[in-house]
């Protein structure tokens, strides 16, 4: 089993790329490829990752890298894997698609690859909007969030739709492995990527990646915010293996979603009513994931604390 200490020193995604300071996508990519290792081929559709990772003729990837159109991550991965199988090479075909390229535009091709159970690794970098083209709403944008296509006006404030439940869509294909990851939980992150690496069949890793300009956050807080998302229930860490769902990290008590929202400029306009609506959605999700059978529904909310950058996982690693 790989831990932080035994991760490889080598950077397969080199320094000098042009991502924004504090980019959550860059963090996720770097660490995922560290675990996956050298025998990997990468496909990236249109997204931030293709712009900051490769600007022809330069590239940050040290592994074979391929890029074509927006909507065909699943199809391309299938083709690449088939070619390598015919050539008798053992490689992992990994696709890093954004939330736009997975929730909306690439859904059909991802679904096709999942249905055929092709031996590929699909990674969705979910930053909850089309950030590359300048912050437009996607199927992954949460309720109330400001984007340029869901602006804040007098009649309507921000996005009125809830985040699409991609986990259920993907797992409905009965694939061998689906997991949600957050960069703020390193041990969990590494374990899941390693697990996905060694499973055969269609694996899907769903990564939660903060976007500094899109979420209007302080770049230094981009890791802290993923921890808060998990603590408040906006993001849940679980895995789905051979039809069985397992929660891999359960926060102690549900923190108010306000705690998470207030850190971000995209939610700052939200009225108390809208926050309540979102809180009810989070409670529903929380009960769906964390409630044991036969227990009553929970919707107790702990009010925001002053500062808590340190989570349970950190305490395990470093003591109180």
């Amino acid at each position: 089993m790989i831990t932080i200490k035994t991760l490889s020193d080598e950077n397969l995604f080199t320094a000098g790329h042009t991502a924004c300071p504090g980019c959550g996508v860059a963090m996720s990519i770097r660490n995922a490829i560290r675990v996956l290792g050298k025998d990997t081929v990468v496909y990236v559709p249109a997204s931030c990752a293709v712009v900051f990772g490769t600007t022809f003729p330069y590239g940050a990837w040290k592994v074979p890298f391929f890029h074509t159109a927006f909507e065909n991550t699943g199809a391309c991965l299938t083709g690449m894997q088939a070619a390598f199988e015919i050539k008798g090479k053992h490689v992992i075909s990994a696709g890093f698609a954004g939330d736009g390229g997975t929730y909306d535009i690439g859904l059909q091709s991802m679904s096709g690859a999942a249905e055929r159970n092709d031996d590929v690794l699909y990674i969705c970098l979910d930053n909850e909007a089309y950030m590359n083209t300048g912050i437009q709403r996607s199927g992954g944008t949460p309720f109330g969030a400001w984007t340029t296509t869901t602006p804040v006006g007098k009649k309507i404030q921000g996005n009125r739709r809830f985040k699409k439940n991609l986990g259920d869509i993907v797992t409905a294909h009965e694939i061998p492995y689906y997991a949600t990851l957050s960069i703020g939980h390193p041990l969990d992150f590494i374990r899941k990527v390693e697990k996905a690496k060694n499973i055969k069949g269609f694996r899907f890793l769903h990564m939660f990646t903060p976007c500094v300009p899109g979420w209007k956050i302080d770049p230094a807080k981009s890791v802290e915010i993923t921890k808060r998302a998990v603590e408040s229930g906006m993001w849940t860490l679980y895995e789905f293996e051979n039809g069985k769902k397992k929660i891999t990290y359960k926060p102690g008590k549900m923190k108010s979603v306000k705690d998470y929202l207030l850190m971000q400029g995209r939610f700052r306009h939200m009225s108390e009513e809208d926050i309540k609506i979102l809180q009810m959605w989070v409670c529903k999700k929380w009960n769906l994931h964390y409630k044991e059978k036969g227990e009553p529904d929970i919707c107790e909310i702990v009010q925001p604390e002053e500062h808590h950058g340190i989570t349970e996982e950190h305490r395990e690693m470093h003591g109180p």
Partner: peptide, 24 residues
């Protein structure tokens, strides 16, 4: 297809890993 392999030109590195020359 624009498929570059690692290489060095007059203008510096190109291809995989060449962003290392881009000081930010």
């Amino acid at each position: 297809g624009g498929a570059l392999i690692e290489g060095r030109t007059e203008a510096g590195l190109i291809g995989p890993g060449s962003f290392i020359e881009n000081k930010v």
